[in-house]
Design a binder for these strands. Structure first.
Lengths: 226, 226
DNA sequence: ATCCTTTCATGGAAATTTCATGTTGGTGTC
DNA sequence: GACACCAACATGAAATTTCCATGAAAGGAT
């Protein structure tokens, strides 16, 4: 994990760098806002720790600049101030967390760990959906269950994605046909049933537990609970 | 995606293997450094997960040996240590990422995915992209497969570059025509199909495995996995 | 004039939908 | 509870539609 430390005071910068490195992180140092922005956008950085008080471009401005440039990594702002206004300002600027000086290094580490965890979790969600061993790969548009790849057609994929995004919720035929088929009113079709059957064959037929269940009179539900 | 796990402790090895397989990866196991090196260089492996602590040849040495032998796949090192020295040592040895035990399996998966994405999309050799034996020379604007030069026209090059930068992702016609042809709305054109055909003739016709695949109703995907 | 790019028309494959029929499950009556 | 009935759902195959590969030829660029 690479952490970028943006801090103009050499003593504080060295302290942060050493402490973070001793905790197993790789540390990059920048000494002002523009340099911080450049590093954040050009280097592979997983997290930014930044002082709010810096000459020239301050922490909040730098934060905004990083977001404007497309940076999505979590940003932790350090500040001697502690008023509500500043806090809100920081979060508006796109920071993910705030730490008020003086702080114990332990607490910084805890925040850093938490932000990095969150970061990777978000990353996971962008890429794939998972429910009880069933994985839907959104990039490749296919599913995996117990290590077996399941290729899906366009409609099958759309239906499974809808079910997985609403796992453990009963979805009515009306909801499904609206979201997956763009059918707003009740045509006498039974496409939904037909496709649920196709999906079951691919996703449930050779596996346990069954995940796609019928709730007679209500609709369908994707769930691992009976 | 094939992952090579190099781990001497049977329990840990089994744990990793099972977890990765449940996530849809194909897993190869090696139980010491030399065996790991041999597999990495002789089998088609997309990523290596390796313990740093092993009897005989340790993880870092194995890592160096794999790189020296021409292996370019990403390598993820597992370690119980967390000090700066070890981390730097691992990265110097040619590892791409570090994970400090104990870790949550979720985190391992996130790293694995991130490395595979990075690895499969771009093998950053200065001015070229590489994917499973297909090399796109960005400077010379031509491709090479199995040592044979493939000359490309402007559009063919643009299309192939887009496909390679997004390897292992399904790309819709809309995405392709927007990025490669700057067509924002749906004209009734079929240039995309026409060019996919031209590209296939040059890139896939005389080679195996086929890399350009059609996902009916979804788009096209560049992938080595069926 | 040549090569690149794009369009067009067509056959065929794959996906989607419908239809006819069998099966299941809920509901009310005894 | 047992039973029958009806609606809801499952199912397989057939019908239809959509989608894509392909070759040739027209239009543009250099």
């Amino acid at each position: 994990m690479r952490i970028l430390v943006v801090e103009d005071e050499p003593k504080v910068a060295a302290f942060l760098k050493q402490g973070l490195e001793e905790s197993g992180y790789e540390v990059l140092s920048a000494y002002d806002g523009p340099m911080g922005k450049r590093f954040a956008l050009q280097e592979p950085v997983d997290l930014v720790v930044m002082d709010v008080v810096m000459p020239g471009m301050n922490g909040l401005e730098t934060c905004k600049a990083i977001r404007a440039g497309g940076g999505t990594m979590p940003i932790l702002i350090l500040t001697a101030l502690g008023t509500t206004d500043d806090k809100v300002g920081g979060l508006d600027a796109g920071a993910d967390d705030y730490l008020v000086k003086p702080f114990e290094f332990k607490e910084l580490l805890a925040r850093v760990r938490s932000l990095l965890r969150r970061g990777s979790a978000v990353h996971v969600q962008a890429d794939q959906l998972e429910y009880h061993g069933l994985v839907l790969d959104l990039a490749r548009k296919e599913a995996v269950r117990e290590g077996l790849r399941i290729t899906l057609t366009a409609k099958e994929f759309a239906l499974l994605e809808y079910l997985m995004r609403n796992a453990d919720r009963v979805l009515s035929r009306a909801q499904i046909s609206e979201k997956v088929w763009d059918i707003d009113f009740d045509t006498g079709t039974n496409v939904v049933e037909a496709y649920v059957k196709l999906l079951r064959k691919k996703v449930d037929r050779d596996f346990e537990p069954k995940l796609i269940h019928t709730r007679v009179g209500l609709g369908y539900i994707l769930t691992a609970r009976t």
